[in-house]
Amino acid sequence: MKIEIYGTGCAKCKKLFENAQAAAGSDALVSKVEDIQQIMNAGVMLTPAIAIDGEVKSAGKVLSVDEIKKMISK
C-alpha cells in the first residue's frame, strides 16, 4: 500500500505525516508530497491532505492515528 501526504511543509502537514507513519507501521510506504505542481495535480486545495493508493481521502485536516488506521483497513 502507498500513502501520500500532501502539504507545503507546514506544522500540520508534518503532524499528519507522523500520524500516518504511526498508523501504517510497516504495511505501507508513507511519503510526503511537497511540490505544488503535484499537489495541484491531485486536486488538493486544502492542506494537509492524505491519499491512499492514489486516491485522496481527506483534505484540510490532521487525522489521528486511529482515523488513519480505520481508513487503511477499509
Binding site: Q37, N41, A42, G43, A49, S58, A59
Partner: peptide, 9 residues
C-alpha cells in the same frame, strides 16, 4: 498548472 479534481469530503 495542470489541476486535477478531487472531492474527498
Amino acid at each position: 498548472m495542470q489541476v486535477g479534481s478531487s472531492d474527498c469530503a
